[in-house]
């Protein structure tokens, strides 16, 4: 059958309503998909999809590094498919807070991140992917990491997980360790007053925690299989 004709009349107002429902609601993430251990015989990989932002992370190591630090492991992050200058230091800083580096003296942990598609929120996806890949690689960590990006819209309302086309006044990405109640990364741009900033931070943390059950489920699903 080449195409199907509907015999039911669809009023135009219904269509309009439907598009407004499809628009991102202010309090929910885009559809997410997490997966770890993607490759059969190689540990240490994770895939994170948030809406149409897709990031693949692979961890190599810890490998011995004779010129490495005497007291703790070094972290190297290699990006592909993305201009990483803006998020590299935030990612390394967050991973330094997450991994128990002192257990891996004189070694190097390399995190390869491939950004397959970028539709906003690459930092939050990269943080989630990198932390899950590290856990999959069997590297000892303090906690799992959950991350969330929120946007402050020009009318001062807050929106969780904005995509690239959203017109924002400011954006804030935060990564937390939910069990330890510690923040490991904050990155923001745009203008905010101090009160707005505090509100946005609190909102981001409360939303990031919502991802925790999903991350947990992803990790346990692989462990049990």
């Amino acid at each position: 059958m080449p195409y199907t004709l509907s015999k039911v009349r669809i009023p135009l107002s219904d269509l309009l309503q439907k598009t407004s429902e499809d628009a991102p609601s202010s309090s929910s993430f885009r559809p997410v998909c997490f997966k770890i251990n993607l490759f059969e015989n190689k540990k240490g990989s994770a895939y994170v999809e948030i809406g149409s932002t897709r990031v693949l992370a692979q961890v190599v190591g810890p490998c011995e590094d004779s010129s490495g630090d005497f007291y703790e492991a070094q972290i190297k992050v290699v990006f592909s498919g993305f201009d990483e200058v803006s998020i590299r230091s935030q990612l390394i800083g967050a991973m330094r807070g997450l991994i128990q580096l002192h257990l891996y003296a004189k070694s190097l942990i390399t995190i390869n991140l491939t950004v397959l598609a970028d539709d906003g929120g690459v930092l939050q996806a990269a943080l989630l992917a990198a932390s899950m890949a590290i856990i999959d690689a069997g590297i000892e960590v303090l906690d799992v990491c959950v991350a969330c990006q929120v946007a402050v819209l020009p009318d001062k309302s807050l929106l969780v997980d904005p995509n690239k086309s959203t017109q924002t006044q400011a954006a804030l990405t935060v990564a937390i360790l939910p069990n330890l109640n510690q923040i490991i990364c904050i990155d923001s741009s745009g203008t905010m007053s101090l009160e707005e900033y505090e509100k946005a931070l609190e909102f981001a943390v409360s939303k990031a925690v919502k991802l925790y059950p999903i991350v947990r489920k992803t990790l346990f699903a692989e462990m049990n299989s």
Binding site: S89, Q90, G93, R96, G97, I176, L177, N181, Q182, I183, I184, C185, I186, D187, S188, S189, G190, T191, M192, S193, L194, Y197, L201, V205
Partner: peptide, 17 residues
């Protein structure tokens, strides 16, 4: 009193921030 970008490195307790 408008503020802008910042980065935070490593660990800080939420209430401390």
């Amino acid at each position: 009193n408008k503020m802008k970008p910042q980065n935070l490195y490593q660990v800080v307790q939420f209430d401390e921030l």
